[in-house]
Nucleic acid binder design. Sequence first.
DNA 1: ACGTGTGAACATGTTCACAGCA
DNA 2: TGCTGTGAACATGTTCACACGT
Lengths: 215, 215
Amino acid sequence: MNDSIDGNSIIVPEVVVQRLPHYLNILSILQVEKTKIVSSEQLGYLAQITPAQIRKDLSYFGKFGKQGKGYSVNILVKRLREILGVNLQWEVCLIGVGRLGRALLSYPGFAPEGFNIIAAFDSDLKQIGQQIGKIKIKNIVEIEEFLQSSSIQIAIVAVPASVTKDILNQLYHSGIKAVLNYAPFTPLDHKDMIIRNIDPVASLQSLTYHLKENN
Amino acid sequence: MNDSIDGNSIIVPEVVVQRLPHYLNILSILQVEKTKIVSSEQLGYLAQITPAQIRKDLSYFGKFGKQGKGYSVNILVKRLREILGVNLQWEVCLIGVGRLGRALLSYPGFAPEGFNIIAAFDSDLKQIGQQIGKIKIKNIVEIEEFLQSSSIQIAIVAVPASVTKDILNQLYHSGIKAVLNYAPFTPLDHKDMIIRNIDPVASLQSLTYHLKENN
DNA sequence: ACGTGTGAACATGTTCACAGCA
DNA sequence: TGCTGTGAACATGTTCACACGT
């Protein structure tokens, strides 16, 4: 119906892709706990997702389960890691080395998952040339040249909102294919460049909507 | 059909609520630029949302537009701020004062939007008692008592994954109604407590799925 | 007997297309 | 005329329910 082995014939809904890291996360914990087999029922309970949805989601990528038994945790972890590309190492560049950018540079959660920040850029002359850990901050004007002689496909953007649009344009023209954007944004869609936004203030604002409602 | 003035009779889809901060963001910029009137067409272009969707989204809350003209930027900003509750001040507590927690404590983006971190908790004895800016870090075991004698409804959680579940339980029993969770999570649903997750690694992993696909 | 994998039923969310008002 | 507001059409996503393999 679908297939994971030959070139994907069926389009996997984006929502499904975004749930996979969550499944993988829980499965990795089960793996550490030496759990061998898990049913969609149990996994659903842990992930707070209906068992039917889990089975449906996984079915986009193949048949991983054993009828009457459940899923092998090891096999499912292995396959999900392959599917997500998490088994690979990814080089990432960081744009913007302000307060937030620096926190991201020293965030210890990226490297163990295969995301390695190998270059950082800023437009502030006071920052440029500084050394942070192994990385020397480069001038943003050099980015296009730098990216064209590298294989970096992912950028983490932590610049002020006012320049985000220009930066995203620049990244697009430099061949960046995926962006994790921390700026409160105006993401004019670029085909072939995927953007994920992280905006804590927007998240808080959608929370207060509900708080306000029931008082 | 719906109404915003009397007690809400129609349930607003969650996706709609989550788009409102984005609209507000763009409208605020227009306001600074002294734009008086905006059509759903223009707003849609800026927000990368179809005009029909914008009109539909707004229609859940009332009729803000003028036929043949468009929307008054000022009025729409004012109303959206009221709808989201962003016109109010919100007291927030922070759980976990590690690397990430400290970055959040000094993040300058919360206060201007009415989100004020007024207390911080940790379980690490080396942290407890320390002063960061105006805040003295308290022992996590005091949190239930503290929250019961306060009106804080929102918590920002920045603790290790392994203790997230316990913390969320504790917050729930202390009457917290909304959580911004930075931990890679296992959010066993608590009714009457809304959780928004921020997980940069999960976001990156759903990005690599697409990068891996076309190579 | 048990739990997966999946078409079909259902629910939710988006877009269309146009009536109605300034 | 121009653009909103909205029912109806359409598209996407979720759940049901059961056939099938072990």
